[in-house]
Write a protein that binds this DNA or RNA. Structure first.
Lengths: 201, 201
DNA sequence: CCACTTTCTTATCTTTTGTTAACGTTTCCT
DNA sequence: AGGAAACGTTAACAAAAGATAAGAAAGTGG
């Protein structure tokens, strides 16, 4: 895929949040970069500041932490979703999360510095503020549901909910990553699946 | 406390996000209401749209769901924090959460309709957009940490972290609410506390 | 001030999850 | 193609959490 196709996809997807006119888009797009990741490359690593927000044109990433020498996968991103270590990006402090490409990825990114420049530009400031607010609000809604699932549901119920709504994750991610995502071990998820899918035991 | 004192506190606290000049504040504050809740009254209830964002001047609330006839407390808000059922407010759809006063509360609120009016007012739009973005981003950071705690920590580790950083919750909330907040039962938290605080068993 | 509710702990028992290890299968890499 | 790594399941055991109930302590509201 060439750069201009990718940018057009981005512009189209952004209409969900904000509709730039031609003049605005010319300036906005000057702050964008194309970023390609080979499988297993990192978009972000613990100890480093994640100073970019990416939009996934093609590919998938997973977010994971290391605890006691073990990888624990907390999240995934797919096509047409944003990718960043939000807290690190917003605070400018080093993050704790690996963000790793699971397939070759094509990303469109802007840096925090570019964001600041856009917010300082009267041509763009208002729409970029709105863009930021809407993306942040959408993110909050996802988190609200996710936290509620940890508070009110058992691991088995979380799996069933994912089974009914999370086809992308189930289809495209290995099961031991999904187990982490649900807050349980891979062995435990294997047992839950036997209970749920076969009715045995 | 009288209304003007409360509004001054609000204005002062908002400086963390945005600094309104006199003219702006006059307009902004016309969209604010004072809202008092007696202990046990509800700020929001399941099945109803939460169409207000509140700022807590005085008091505390808890957020809870009902599951299988049981209350499950998911969150708390204290003085100088925002209070809303974010998803319901943003989508305009009925929420699932009770937000209940645990003490008599003094709140400053604006409705979604007022927010729309402010965003439509060129005098305020830019600063209110920014205000919304910054509050949303702060909320995301809290959620990111909270989800990480469910993914990477055991209930005991979550309790210890709260013990080291969450003095307000520990000091002001009954233990069975805290248990829910940590994603466990009150009985289980009582056992964890014995293990942790006495070293027994 | 007294009854009533709420809160917390403890005990017992059951269920679930974690841990570790083994095994077969699939996928990956060169 | 062939060796290595990754993946999913299962088993056995230990550890933890859930459910339920009982009782003590603290707080609440007439």
């Amino acid at each position: 895929m060439d750069a201009s196709t990718a940018l057009n996809i981005y512009r189209e997807q952004l209409k969900k949040y904000i509709d730039f006119n031609e003049a605005e888009w010319i300036i906005f797009s000057q702050h964008l970069s194309i970023n390609q990741l080979k499988k297993k490359q990192y978009f972000s690593e613990p100890g480093k500041v994640c100073d970019k927000v990416a939009f996934m044109i093609k590919g998938t990433v997973r977010y994971y932490h290391i605890k006691d020498g073990q990888e624990i996968t907390g999240y995934f991103s797919f096509e047409n979703e944003f990718v960043t270590s939000y807290k690190s990006f917003l605070t400018g402090l080093p993050g704790l999360t690996y963000i790793q490409a699971l397939e070759d990825c094509l990303l469109i990114t802007f840096t925090h510095r570019d964001l600041d420049q856009m917010l300082a530009n009267p041509m763009l400031a208002y729409k970029v503020e709105k863009f930021g607010r809407l993306v942040a609000e959408e993110t909050i809604i996802c988190y609200e549901d996710r936290v509620a699932s940890f508070i009110t549901q058992t691991p088995e119920e979380r799996y069933l909910q994912l089974y009914n709504t999370g086809k992308d994750i189930l289809r495209r991610m290995p099961q031991h990553y999904i187990a982490n995502y649900l807050g349980i071990t891979p062995v435990s998820l294997s047992r839950i699946r036997r209970r749920v899918l076969t009715g045995v035991k």
